[in-house]
């Protein structure tokens, strides 16, 4: 288990998140894809920090996770609101901002 392998795994996870974000077309799964990308970033952080023997990474990961939790709560509330208004969570139904 080398640092390179850990960073490689985080790379694969991040790319899978990006692909999921583009392929999926409902807000919920796209939001889950964002969570995958956040986790990939956390993994890269911890892997690189372990190679450098730094402890600060765990603190940063803790802060990232709290921000992610807050973001998930607000994001899901917004998705619920949008579903109540439009009766749909397909992202193609929300193009009001498109010119």
């Amino acid at each position: 288990m080398t640092t390179g392998a850990v960073v490689g795994l985080s790379l694969v996870l991040f790319v899978l998140g990006v692909i999921a974000f583009f392929v999926k077309r409902d807000l919920l799964t796209q939001f889950m894809a964002v969570e995958i990308m956040l986790n990939a970033a956390n993994l890269a952080f911890l892997g690189l920090a372990q190679g450098a023997e730094r402890l600060d990474a765990q603190v940063i990961v803790f802060l990232v996770m709290t921000v992610a939790a807050a973001e998930a709560a607000v994001g899901l509330a917004i998705i619920l609101l949008v579903f109540r208004r439009k009766k749909s969570i397909a992202s193609k139904d929300f193009r009001t901002l498109r010119g």
């Binding site: 939790a69 998930a72 619920l80 969570i89 397909a90």
Partner: peptide
């Protein structure tokens, strides 16, 4: 520990609640 507790526990349970509250098939081709 907080990955399991916060992510696999709290955040994903929140997601599953929302999946239950919305109709996932509504308007999605």
């Amino acid at each position: 520990a907080i990955q399991i507790l916060v992510y696999a526990g709290a955040i994903m349970v929140l997601f599953i609640f929302v999946v239950m509250m919305v109709d996932p098939r509504a308007g999605i081709p």
